[in-house]
């Protein structure tokens, strides 16, 4: 993505963005270097493909969330939306629905969740944090209800999607790449994306300038919901079954962490999909490393939190330096 910007220095923010992500990229490289020295498995093709397959779901969610956060929004319920979609699609498949029908249902379901979030945020003016925390809690429960507390097998219908590949590239990774490119292009090349940045930067000025702020915000939440639907199908295809505790709030926290680590501001007006990708990769590599080095998996949560805290402090210091 960085290469797009190099030709036109006047309007693209990417050359400074290169420097902006240099620190994060360096940290990622150092961790990769360390892991490839400590473990023979890390740098092998199967492991790399495996890591990328694992982070694909997170990347889809994080890419959408980056655009939403550009507009000053926030969605804590994406992971829980994924959980419900996984459960519902699995049940549909189990009851014999065609895979395409089930998948469309999954995406539409996500859209409905996004619509609810967006309407509550815009019509009642409830803070996005509170709204989506509430819906996340509701949806976490709804997912358990949908699978009645038991694992639901998706059968073999999605196996091809979950394990297949073209030219050695897994489908899941391809989908993630398309979504990431789409998010980056939206922010950069569409009025929709530029308006999102304007809303996040100064909502009053955006409204007075004729941007339909509520409609725009709802559209962003719906788009995020649809991506959650897509992510749910991707996750189900990888796992083969829906089981209690899949996805949910903890997935979402990781996604938010990835976006923030990437350097997107919580208050909106500024967003970077490139940073988000680096953030997702960093968390994916750290999780993989903990696995490979046979460190107790309890430390994974600790590591995510520490990385997030350090990244947030660094972003804040850099922000302060600019003023």
């Amino acid at each position: 993505m960085n290469s797009i910007g190099l030709s036109r220095t006047t309007t693209l923010r990417l050359p400074p963005a290169l420097g902006r992500h240099a620190g994060l990229a360096a940290v990622l490289l150092l961790i990769c270097l360390y892991l490839s020295l400590r473990s023979e498995v890390f740098a092998t093709t199967p492991n790399v493909v495996n890591v990328l397959r694992q982070v694909a779901v997170m990347a889809v969610l994080a890419a959408g969330l980056t655009v939403l956060m550009a507009a000053g929004g926030l969605d804590f319920s994406l992971g829980s939306q994924v959980a419900v979609v996984v459960a519902v699609v699995a049940r549909l498949l189990e009851s014999g629905a065609h895979v395409v029908v089930a998948s469309i249902c999954g995406v539409l379901l996500g859209a409905v969740f996004g619509l609810v979030n967006g309407l509550v945020v815009t019509v009642f003016n409830v803070a996005p944090f509170v709204t989506t925390l509430a819906t996340a809690t509701v949806l976490d429960g709804a997912a358990l209800i949908a699978m009645q507390g038991q694992s639901v097998s998706a059968g073999g219908a999605l196996t091809e999607l979950g394990t297949g590949e073209v030219l050695g590239i897994p489908y899941l990774l391809l989908i993630a790449a398309v979504v990431i490119a789409g998010a980056a292009a939206t922010l950069r090349w569409t009025r929709f994306g530029r308006d999102a940045l304007a809303i996040g930067g100064n909502a009053v000025a955006a409204r007075l300038g004729g941007i339909a702020v509520p409609r725009h915000t709802v559209a962003l939440y719906v788009a995020n919901g649809m991506l959650a639907g897509l992510a749910g199908i991707m996750l189900l295809s990888r796992l083969g079954a829906a089981s209690p505790g899949t996805a949910g709030l903890h997935l979402e926290l990781t996604v938010v962490a990835a976006v923030v680590i990437g350097g997107t501001a919580l208050h909106g007006g500024n967003a970077t999909v490139a940073g988000t990708v680096l953030g997702v990769l960093l968390l994916g590599v750290v999780a993989n490393g903990i696995n490979l080095l046979q460190i107790d998996s309890f430390y994974q949560s600790v590591s995510v939190g520490v990385v997030l805290l350090v990244a947030a402090v660094v972003n804040q210091l850099r922000h302060r330096g600019r003023h």
Binding site: T11, R194, L197, A198, G201, N202, V204, A205, A206, L208, G209, G210, G269, N270
Partner: peptide
């Protein structure tokens, strides 16, 4: 406060309408 979007570029601000 209510007129410009501070983080966006001059070009984008002056062409917002």
């Amino acid at each position: 406060g209510t007129g410009l979007v501070p983080q966006l570029s001059v070009d984008e601000n002056v062409t917002a309408l």
